[in-house]
Design a protein around this nucleic acid. Sequence first.
DNA 1: CGGCATCCAATGTGATACTG
DNA 2: CAGTATCACATTGGATGCCG
Lengths: 134, 134
Amino acid sequence: MPTQTAAERRAEARAAYDAFIAECPTRKLLDRISDKWVSLVLAALTDGPRRYNDLSRTIAGVSQKMLTQTLRTLERDGLVSRTVTAAVPVRVDYELTPLGRTLQPVMVAIKSWAETHIEQVETARSTYDRSNHA
Amino acid sequence: MPTQTAAERRAEARAAYDAFIAECPTRKLLDRISDKWVSLVLAALTDGPRRYNDLSRTIAGVSQKMLTQTLRTLERDGLVSRTVTAAVPVRVDYELTPLGRTLQPVMVAIKSWAETHIEQVETARSTYDRSNHA
DNA sequence: CGGCATCCAATGTGATACTG
DNA sequence: CAGTATCACATTGGATGCCG
């Protein structure tokens, strides 16, 4: 008979992952999702499925390479689903998976933080630059 | 006399910042904070001031270069304060500023997301690798 | 339309050595 | 203790050209 309940095992498993530990796989995952393009893509997918070109227009300035690369990685990691509709020309839709929807609010929060605090950051920078490094 | 109230001006200023726009300064800020070391440092400062060596031990595997560089940038951006205590040897403490405390919960959320969803991501990866790219 | 392959310049990052 | 400086290397990312 079990000496641990399922809840206990889950708690232990959760505690076993710590991104402060260099070798922990979560460190690499943290690195992957700590990415400008990831947050922009997940934010862009907030309101439902989006086509490739639609995404590239929304996320202004993203290169084909980076958009495709980011989408592939997100797909592989199970955060985004890719749906190809046979037609001429081909139609490809990207959509958040249930897993992706758990990360999306966090990514939106980062993007929003940048947008709402940019002025305070810029003020801090000019203060720093004036007092310290001439 | 003003045709806008202060609240209206603030609302307009807020709407003017959009990280989806390539030239928006928030895009660069988003890139800066979307960084593995930033999230780890802000998470490590959750419980109050920490000394340099304390941080380097907590954030296992971080190089001196990256830790110093990250702390300098965070300091310049007004997210972290640096306090030098004259002594032998010197003592330097880093602490979140009020501005830094507004970003800290978001950074902790990313780190936590990675830790709580790593297994689902790994499952998704092996599924993807088995079905697609042999 | 939605990619992929390649080249290459710029940047990021770690290891190492040294210092007030 | 808390850095700085330098070098070597890896990674990033844009530009370009081609394709089903």
